[in-house]
Nucleic acid binder design. Structure first.
Lengths: 227, 227
DNA sequence: TGTACATCAGTGAACGCGCGTTCACTGATGTAC
DNA sequence: TGTACATCAGTGAACGCGCGTTCACTGATGTAC
């Protein structure tokens, strides 16, 4: 981008003070890219940008809100990536698998950012309604595809539950491949297709077939409410 | 335990210097229990134990190895818990579901520790062979039950792959319920049984049934190697 | 056209704090003779 | 039985460092008159 990234940057022209905000987010993003990096500090970000430590305060009240800004930016990137990957025609199952692959690849290629996006409860998110949580758009698309696959409405709880189940598997897949790199993981593409197919098949009402154990032995398990 | 936990502790009798090591691990464990706690420091641990900061060095070279000790202790606790939960008789499917429920409950009830156990690559674990990784015992039990369910040998890759897939789902379930507490998660018990059943069903060779899309359209997906 | 003032986009020194790490030290308890 | 020494289980002061945060300041650019 610039010729002298490590040098002192020159001040922005009048009216473009907001540019620094952008640079700070990108610098924080760069520092957070390493999943094993030490905790982010305000001064480290300022150093990375090439600016006085106090200048960060001009745009962010604390590091929490800076991290949140990074998280939001990466979430919108994920949404964009998923839109690119997913061909809008083709059977819903193929679209689901394509979207899930994009999700996993994004997470595995950006382990530091993925951790930021899904780390322990961000204080700032504590009172945000579900629909406004970052990443909700990604999840909504998944629900819609699953509903289409199941030939139900997107508002159907069964679609929500199956989509949730897929999301949980995807998240476990990404986090474990990040934290347990030496584990002999199966090939990602094959595994995603296999897992998605298994979970989707369960949604198609194959419950009688896939439960060879004497039915009724687990009364609490008779939970196929919507079928 | 003691009457004066916050007070200065008295020195251990001769020959029992190792007791401090134990106390340090427990103190660190207590501090790590909160998933939103600030990063663990050596001095905070010493304060919690009621001991001089330098005393921690008598037993741990750095915090990394202390955290690893905490992680190992919690892993063995998880193994113990799982052994209690899982009735050894009964059909394998029921044993798998019971073990998975124990796993999830442990994780959700100990969010801070679960995060320590599965956080970003611990440097200390980098060159440990898979079989010596903490938690391997838990995973082995899962493989064996899955193999029994599938009526195959535990060494069969298909058992390994299905067990892995279940583990991934469990991990995603626990981590997301920790980090996204306001999401409208379905009831845990029902969800675990449902997900496990779907994944197990896929292992029983229902691939033709559960793939309503034209076979061959995704050449890479014809991956049921072992059937 | 000049000039006083306002605004913008930051800077730089200074503070107090908690941290990891070092070093020599302490004081009770055991052991050799 | 006494006594010198060794060992164990820690302590306490001190260090230099990076951190978040404060405060008054700077210097270029626009604007009113």
């Amino acid at each position: 981008m610039e010729t002298a990234e490590t040098q002192k940057r020159q001040r922005n022209p009048r009216g473009q003070g907001g540019q620094l905000r952008d640079d700070i987010i990108e610098a924080a993003s760069k520092l957070l890219a390493d999943p094993a990096a030490p905790p982010l500090t305000l001064r480290a970000v300022a150093r990375e940008v090439g600016v006085a430590a106090t200048s960060v305060y001009l745009h962010f009240a604390d590091i929490q809100s800076l991290v949140l800004a990074v998280s939001e930016r990466r979430f919108s990137e994920l949404v964009k990536l998923q839109d690119e990957f997913v061909v809008t025609d083709g059977p819903p199952r193929d679209r689901i698998v394509a979207g899930c692959r994009a999700y996993c690849e994004f997470g595995i290629e950006n382990p530091g950012h993925y951790q930021v996006m899904f780390s322990q409860p961000l204080r700032a998110l504590e009172y945000v309604p579900v629909e406004q949580m970052p990443g909700y758009a990604v999840f909504t698309e998944l629900i819609e595809s699953v509903a289409e696959y199941m030939e139900r409405l997107p508002s159907d709880p069964a679609a929500f539950e199956t989509a949730t189940m897929i999301w949980q598997w995807l998240h476990g897949t990404v986090s474990l491949r990040i934290s347990r790199q030496r584990f002999p993981w199966p090939a990602l593409d094959l595994q995603v297709a296999d897992a998605v197919d298994r979970i989707l098949a369960g949604a198609k009402g194959l419950s009688l077939v896939r439960c060879p154990v004497a039915p009724g032995s687990f009364p609490g398990d008779a939970h196929h409410r919507t079928f």
